[in-house]
Structures are given as structure tokens and as C-alpha cells.
């Protein structure tokens, strides 16, 4: 008796929580946002040596054109 009640309660709680979980997780990528936040904060507060200098060095990648008659 008690056991079935507990199971029922559990299902009810699950039913109540699930839709909330679904909306949050599907629509907002919390872990990715956290990762992005950490990266930006580390750079702004200079907590770690930033390694994301992705821009090519100026001059190293200019167009090298060839003229063919």
C-alpha cells in the first residue's frame, strides 16, 4: 500500500517536473553557455593565458596572385 503510494507520488512528481526540464534543456544549452562564459570571463579577468588568437597574422596571408597571359 505504502509502496504503491510512493510510486504514484514519484510518477506525479516526475510528471510535474518533466515538462519544465524539457523546456529548459531543449531551448537553452546551459552547459555550452557555461563553457562560453568561462572562456570569456577567463579572458576578461585574465585568469589564464588566452589561447584563442585565431586571427591570422597580418601580412602572412595576403593574396598571392599570379598573372598569366
Amino acid at each position: 500500500m505504502h509502496k504503491t503510494l510512493a510510486v504514484r507520488m514519484f510518477i506525479l512528481i516526475l510528471a510535474g517536473l518533466l515538462p519544465a526540464c524539457v523546456t529548459i534543456n531543449i531551448y537553452f544549452p546551459a552547459a555550452a553557455a557555461e563553457k562560453a562564459a568561462d572562456r570569456i570571463i577567463d579572458e576578461v579577468w585574465q585568469l589564464q593565458q588566452s589561447s584563442s588568437q585565431a586571427l591570422p597574422e597580418p601580412g602572412s596571408s595576403h593574396p598571392q596572385n599570379k598573372v598569366t597571359p
Binding site: 526540464c21 534543456n25 531543449i26 531551448y27 546551459a30 555550452a32 553557455a33
Partner: peptide, 21 residues
């Protein structure tokens, strides 16, 4: 309910890519 839960997890996992920053 279990199915729904798994579905939710699956979708959640799918959405966890990288954010463009």
C-alpha cells in the same frame, strides 16, 4: 514517462553544442 524522460535527455544532449562567442 520513462520514454519521455529519455527523449528529453536526448534532445538536451543534442542541444549542447558550442555557443558562438
Amino acid at each position: 514517462w520513462l520514454m519521455l524522460g529519455l527523449l528529453a535527455l536526448g534532445l538536451a544532449a543534442q542541444a549542447q553544442g558550442n555557443l558562438e562567442v
